[in-house]
């Protein structure tokens, strides 16, 4: 039941009590760029892509609740320029090589960058040394592609009830860690059917043996009509369609 409407880029958006700006907009078919949010998982507010102007004040659309009569601006030149900068920061922070990535064409980071018109990561690359963990029989963890969105952390903790993942370290040295003394994914309780495996927006967590199964041209984001805000579905997480 609608609790009222607010204005998003001049358009009236109905919302339900307690709903965030991002969720209400998505329900109305309006996409606000974001990477660290998926319906069904607790809002996080870390990627900052969904920052919007709420009555002149800037805030994340995924953590701010909609209120009747509020005026929200999202598709402004300035905000999109900032979003482009954020995506570029994510690209140089990790080691993202789209041509060799199984997730290409199904990757939300890549797709968000395309939608923002990114032609170059622009900043000086950090080229960090990060570990790839292929120990698990069914899942590979490629930390070079991790953007620290914590979707897997939340999914494993709140949906799978397993606490397989967490973020260790601080600042630019923050990294995805797993729940085992050996530090190996194989020694955790992760199973290939876990929600945590599906939610990764990039190619950091992939199911094995399904990479490159879908030819270029038929991958999810090769079909131009797909909305970014749709929840990642089974199969998509590993580059399938």
């Amino acid at each position: 039941m609608s609790a009222g409407t607010f204005t998003l880029d001049g358009r009236a958006i109905p919302f339900e009590e307690g709903q965030t700006i991002l969720d209400a907009a998505a329900a109305a078919g309006v996409d606000i760029p974001h990477l660290c949010h998926l319906p069904g998982l607790a809002p996080h507010g870390s990627c900052k892509l969904c920052t919007v102007s709420i009555g002149g004040r800037l805030g994340a659309a995924c953590t701010n609740r909609a209120a009747a009569g509020m005026t929200v601006e999202s598709e402004t030149a300035e905000l999109n320029a900032h979003r482009l900068t954020l995506v570029q920061m994510l690209f140089v922070e990790g080691n993202h090589f789209c041509p060799s990535c199984e997730k290409s064409g199904a990757c939300r980071l890549q797709e968000t960058a395309r939608r923002l018109g990114m032609t170059t990561p622009h900043f000086t690359h950090f080229f960090p040394a990060r570990d790839l963990d292929a120990s698990h029989p069914d899942v590979v963890l490629e930390r070079n592609r991790c953007i620290l969105c914590e979707l897997c952390v939340r999914a494993s903790r709140d949906v799978d009830g397993k606490n397989v993942f967490a973020i260790g370290g601080r600042g630019i040295r923050a990294r995805l860690i797993v729940n085992s003394a050996s530090g190996r994914l194989a020694d955790t309780a992760l199973s290939a059917n876990d929600r945590a495996v599906e939610v990764c927006p990039t190619g950091a967590i992939l199911r094995k043996r399904v990479g490159f199964a879908v030819p270029i041209g038929r991958r999810p984001y090769d079909r131009h009509d797909i909305a970014l805000s749709l929840p990642t579905r089974r199969g998509e997480g590993a580059g399938g369609g």
């Binding site: 507010g45 870390s46 990627c47 900052k48 892509l49 954020l86 920061m89 994510l90 140089v92 922070e93 900043f123 000086t124 950090f126 953007i147 620290l148 973020i167 370290g169 601080r170 600042g171 630019i172 040295r173 923050a174």
Partner: peptide, 21 residues
């Protein structure tokens, strides 16, 4: 600031290190 950034959000985690560099 680059040393003390908690790393939670993208702009601060990456931006403070870019500035430092």
């Amino acid at each position: 600031f680059a040393h003390e950034s908690c790393g939670f959000c993208t702009p601060c985690r990456v931006g403070t290190s870019l500035l430092r560099n």
